[in-house]
Each structure stands twice: as C-alpha cells, then as structure tokens.
C-alpha cells in the first residue's frame, strides 16, 4: 500500500516546495520580472548559456553571505534565470565581492580576481564593499573593493536584499556589450 501511496504522491501530488499561494506577493512578481530580464541579457551576452558567479568574502559581517545564500532558496531560485554560483573563480564570469576588504584578505581577493578568466565582471556587494562603510579608515581594513581590484558595478545596502542584488546584476549586464 505504501508503494501505491508513493506513486500517487509522485504523479498526482504537489510538485513544488512552496505552494503557489505563498509565492504570489507583489515582491515575488517583481523578482520574476527582474529574473526574466536577466535571462534575456544572459542570452544576448553569452549566447544562451548561463552566467556563472563566484562569491568572495573580502571581510564582511556575514550578513551579505546570508543574502547571497538566500538567492538560492525557493523564493528567488536564481538558477531558473540562468545564474548560478560556482566553486572556483576559474569557472566564473562574474565575481561578487563582499567587504570591506581587510588587510588579512587583500592578497586572497587579488588572487581570486587573477584566477578568474577575462572578461570578468566584478560586483561589489554591500556598503562595506562599495565604500568601506562604517569600517573605513580602520587600521585593519584596506577599504572598498576598488582599492584592491577593478570594480564594475556597486550594489549598496546593509546588506542589500536578494531583490536589490538581482536588480544590480541586471544593471551590470545591461551596460555590457
């Protein structure tokens, strides 16, 4: 009987992790719209392939990492728009750098950038990465990411929400030829 029950669930049960009603707020529609736009841009720039992102922590408070991880949950699920996080900078088209870049991470951030193939779009995520934020001028901090590697787009926020990050990515891709 258990087997029949299993078959029933498999073929006739709900097929989503979150029911439609939980995902129909205006916010989720906005994400859907931004995502579709990103998909178009990725198609234009990379000929139908996907955009691979490598996240690098340059010294953040881990709030930015929480929001980047959130991009993968069922509400945002950025894989469906052709975006995905990769384990190595060698596979990346885009770097997400959070920060402020600390002295102890300066070399690691540089090396990660050098390991990524050209052209690589560098995105500074969060106030710390964009300007150094509240940590600016501390003896232990180098400062904003652009003091260490070239930065192409800045997404401010403390930390920026997943939606703001997606908007920023769209902005970055739109400007590219």
């Amino acid at each position: 009987m258990a087997f029949i029950k299993l078959l029933k669930i498999l073929f006739f049960g709900p097929k989503v992790t979150e029911s439609e009603s939980g995902l129909s707020g205006p916010k989720d529609q906005e994400i859907q719209n931004i995502g579709e736009e990103i998909k178009k841009e990725v198609e234009r720039l990379y000929g139908g392939r996907s955009l691979r992102i490598r996240a690098v922590d340059g010294g953040s408070t881990n709030a930015e990492e929480i929001e980047l991880t959130a991009l993968l949950n069922a509400y945002y699920d950025i894989d469906r728009f052709g975006l995905s996080f990769v384990a190595s900078p060698r596979h990346a088209d885009m770097l997400f750098v959070t920060g402020p870049v600390t002295r102890n991470l300066e070399a690691a951030v540089k090396k990660t950038y050098q390991a990524a193939p050209e052209p690589c779009i560098v995105v500074a995520i969060g106030d710390g990465a964009c300007t150094g934020g509240i940590w600016n001028d501390s003896y232990a901090v180098v400062g904003s990411v652009d003091k260490v590697i070239p930065v192409h787009i800045r997404i401010p926020g403390d930390p920026p929400t997943p939606t703001e990050i997606l908007k920023g990515v769209l902005g970055a891709l739109r400007g590219k030829k």
Partner: peptide, 27 residues
Amino acid sequence: FTHKGVEKILEGKTVVEALPFIERISG
C-alpha cells in the same frame, strides 16, 4: 581574516555611536 578592528573603533565612542558596530559584529 575578517579582523576589522571593532574593539579599537569602539574606543572613545558614545553608547549610541557604538550600537551600529555592535549589531554588525556578526550579521
């Protein structure tokens, strides 16, 4: 690696000025 000098930055700050740093010790 993420040593940002929080303790040093807090020195000489008032209680109100310190709070944003305290809230950002660990996100």
